[in-house]
Design a protein around this nucleic acid. Structure first.
Lengths: 136, 136
DNA sequence: TCACCTTTGTTATCGGCAATAGCAATTCGA
DNA sequence: TCGAATTGCTATTGCCGATAACAAAGGTGA
């Protein structure tokens, strides 16, 4: 059937994001991690002691939505929280969190490589800068 | 803070899609349309009499999820359903649906133009083909 | 120092989108 | 014609994100 939508970059963006989200989710599912979990672990790993709200700001996750996320990661024994002052809490990975992140990183690298392979060579180097220009 | 994620096309894809989805939603909200509504109307407009499941296949919306979507559009007086045979139903726009679609189309065109303007000229023409290669 | 504004973490709730499982009715095809 | 596939549907679930409101703590300027 005739599809007038395929000429819209915005539509293509939505479809591409949906498709890849499903694939990444499938890759991370065996590790019992969701995409947001993985990004959180990555960010905490390179910024140990970072505050919850700072991570949220960087990932554009609102404070309110960070709560269940962090709780799950903590319950799973992947992160630790330590009071910085009476108000803020510093986040860090547990050894198990680090192990899980290593596994996740392998999946993510494979996923990203596969994603890039799908786009024709002539367009490949333009993808990241174009996407970043849209939201950064 | 240090962000190791920005080098991942998959992450950029997710962020870009989220950002633009919010913008488009804001543009369509005054028309009381959601993104999925608008794409549905567009598809029905150029394929009058098309079947519900065919639209769903084209947009990758499962049959089960089409039901509330179509019901809302019908309740709003934007589409009509007509039995084709005992099993399928043909979809078409009402006059009001056509008017609403015209308004939506203006918003969408403006949104898409604005989106494209954001990406630097050298990358611009690569965006659509690159995205389509990812999901098509 | 004190009053005020901001930040942080939290609860509770909602909306949009997509997925799964299962069902009844109908149509299609070998 | 009979089994398989298709269609529309109900019900439920999960993920992600948004909003509103709150208490407690920190930061700041007069």
């Amino acid at each position: 059937m005739d599809d007038p939508l395929i000429r819209f970059p915005g539509y293509a963006l939505r479809r591409a994001a949906n498709a890849t989200a499903a694939e990444l989710a499938a890759r991370l599912a065996p590790l019992e991690l969701r995409q947001s979990d993985a990004s959180l672990l990555m960010l905490i790993a390179v910024n140990p002691g970072v505050t919850a709200s700072a991570v949220g700001r960087s990932l554009d996750i609102q404070r309110a939505n960070m709560v269940p996320l962090l709780k799950r990661l903590e319950d799973a024994g992947l992160i630790e929280r330590e009071a910085i002052d009476g108000k803020s809490q510093g986040l860090s990975l547990t050894p198990e969190g680090l192990r899980r992140l290593d596994a996740a990183r392998r999946e993510i690298e494979a996923f990203e490589a596969e994603l890039l392979e799908r786009v024709p060579e002539e367009h490949r180097r333009h993808l990241l800068p174009a996407l970043n220009a849209i939201w950064r």
